[in-house]
Simulated scan of single mutants.
Amino acid sequence: MIKVLILHTSVGHGIKITAQNIYARLVKSGRFEARIEDFQELERGMFAMVLEKIYFFFTETFPFIWGWVYSERVATFTIPLRPLISSFKYKRTLKLIEKFEPDIIISTETSPTGIVSYLKTRGLYSGKLVVAFSDYHLHRFWLYDEVDLYLCNIGEQAIELKKLGVAPERLAVTGMIVSEKYLQKVSREDAAKKFALDSRKKAVLVSGGRRGLQASVQIVMDLLASPVPFQIAVVTGKNEELKKQLEELKPTPEHDLKILGYVTDQEVLMSAVDVLISKPGGPTIAEAVAKGLPIVVTDAHPGHETLNMKYLERHNIAFHGRNPAEVAKLVEMILRGEVKYDKAEAFEKIIKPKGSVSLTDALSRFNMNL
């Protein structure tokens, strides 16, 4: 049986979810012995903690600076520093590799990719290294000469990698790897009943747990002011302050309001609604596409979120609301059928692109060449 070690970080929600979805697919196949580890916890130390705090500080407080750091221009100067950074934090990862002895390591974030690449150059790991993306663009900082296979979410990533000189045999287009529960049919009636919604009325889902406090509150206020009748369900995640503020808002005769807090079965909730409002995170968008939901993306931070948003908007996979008022207007237009959304086309673009292969088949064929 092929042994696979999956490494992720918890810095980005999508990075962790992608790793978990890969793990679930491999275990279910019965063809792989898989293990999943949080690289941040594995290499927890002062250096890693400082980098994590810097990341969250800039993305949340000064996102425009993060956008500049994320740019390709800055990457030209930071890429040569990666081996030096990796040399400070590889020992626990190496111990895990020596104990588990994986044939393949799959990384969903650039930090563990850098560590494993460093170990390969030093002859401390002789297996294969696979990189799985969780966004809808490509960044040179994610790429290493030591990577044996890139799992691409979209065909455009593979095309760009080829232009950068990556050999075709090092590429596999799999589409975004979503949890299989989002691909299963759930009746609207059953889903609505679970969340105390009326299955006969239109419903809008606001995913607000990671959005700024005031942005989420204003979006809900603008939805409540809409002349179009619909229900509003808001998922606030673990953001208790946001949940408390939203609970102070009152429903209107045209709009029932449900503040749901943290939800563990969002695939069911998505089956009860007609529109999703969300940040442009890779897995969240793919989950909504798998459910056939029109999506309004908003509050995209500079950097990877903005690049994701541009791709989604360009291919009519999502609509971009630049402010809460625009978000509410787009929701109205979607519910009235005034804008076009082709759910089959969106599904083909990011869940099952033309010529794509399954995750397990990509890894199995790849492993046969060991």
Rank of each mutant, 00 (worst) to 15 (best):
I15F: 06
Q231N: 15
S207H: 14
Y341N: 03
K194T: 15
I232F: 07
L51N: 10
A344F: 01
S226Q: 12
G209R: 14
L224H: 08
A325I: 03
L257W: 07
A233G: 02
P253Y: 05
L246D: 05
M46F: 12
K16C: 10
C152K: 02
V275L: 07
D274T: 13
R322K: 13
L51V: 01
K194P: 15
L51T: 06
E160W: 10
I17F: 01
S86H: 09
A362N: 04
M368F: 14
E326K: 05
F58G: 03
A346Y: 00
I232R: 01
E248G: 10
K343C: 07
M46T: 11
K91T: 09
Q40R: 04
S107R: 08
L119R: 07
I105N: 03
F62N: 05
I154N: 02
A191N: 10
L242C: 13
S356H: 02
K128Q: 13
A225E: 15
S199E: 15
Q214S: 08
V204E: 10
E332D: 15
E247Q: 15
K310F: 04
V4Y: 02
L161G: 08
I105Q: 00
F141I: 09
Y341E: 01
A203R: 13
S364T: 11
K89M: 14
E109H: 15
N316G: 01
R322F: 04
E267F: 11
E267D: 15
V11D: 06
R170C: 04
D256M: 09
I65F: 11
P80A: 12
V296Q: 14
E146G: 11
G165L: 12
G14H: 02
H301S: 11
P353F: 00
G282E: 03
F32R: 09
D256K: 12
H304S: 08
S216Y: 14
F58L: 10
P251H: 06
R44F: 12
A172R: 08
V263G: 09
F39P: 00
I17W: 01
K95G: 05
K89E: 14
P229G: 15
K3D: 04
I115W: 03
G114C: 07
F133P: 00
E180C: 03
F39R: 01
K89L: 12
L359R: 12
L363D: 12
V217G: 07
A225I: 08
M221Q: 14
E41P: 00
V268W: 02
A272K: 07
V131G: 00
V11Q: 11
K3M: 10
Q184C: 10
F47V: 14
D148L: 15
F47P: 03
G127K: 15
P168S: 13
K343Q: 10
K238C: 02
D145I: 07
L269V: 08
K349C: 00
L224T: 12
A34H: 11
A172T: 03
G355S: 04
T121A: 13
G321Q: 09
S271P: 04
P251W: 08
